[in-house]
Amino acid sequence: MKNILYILLALSVSSCFKERIELDLNQENQKIVITSWITDLDEPQFVTVGKTVNYLGSEGKEFVSGAIVKLTNSTDVYFLEEEEEGKYFLPSNWIAILGDTYTLSVAVEEVEYVASHLMRPCPVIEEAGFLIYERNPWEEEEETMDSIYVYGTTFGFQETAGGDDAYYAIDFLKGTMAGDSMRNGGFANDDFVDEEYFADIELSEFDRLYALGDTAIVELYSIGDETANYLSDIESEVFRGSPFDPPPANVRTNFTGGAVGYFIASGAQQVEVVIE
């Protein structure tokens, strides 16, 4: 009897199975996709124009060439040049004006898509540093029994007074593309914490900590509440899997005309942290 009970017990709790499956999804007409995040950092600023692709499978991005892309603010109008397929760059001498509202206009096949965004100044990154974590060697499947030390970045900043502020922050190993992935960043708004000083913010995920001698880049962007909502929409759509998730829904866009995607203009700060 005891053996039977053990078998029943083990079988009973063997629940929850995941299985990759083939599925035929309905396909709709393609939509124009416009994504752009311009900042006051000293790096190329560009707009990407493309089309949606089928959800399942390995179909890559589909770019749109020949679009007329225009950026305006209170004083100037800039036409962006297509330097790569579907990628339209601002002139290298373009200078961001913090506090100004930028309007991006993209014309594709005689349809114009327009979005605007306020470029908020970004608070200064303060007290950038790092923390040491001790890992158990058996967790790392290392042969040594000595402890392993890894490092994560920390920083602080003074939140700007007034509501509707939100921030996006990311850290990554210098010289890598990790900074281009939203998966490595985090964001928050200033609800309940307006004008507070944030100290010892830890960004580094446990799967990408640093080693001694590495140089980490920490970036902070002032994106505003509405853009934080956009990122939150993406997060809730992309990282689904809980039975208590809300119903799937299209993430918001700030473009008129039926395009998907988002236009962000933000002040940004960047610091280097040398792990030594």
Partner: peptide, 14 residues
């Protein structure tokens, strides 16, 4: 989803 696009390295469903 009936489509997707890329934003900062993630596939956003449509």
């Amino acid at each position: 989803p009936t489509g997707k696009y890329d934003f900062l390295g993630v596939s956003v469903p449509v």
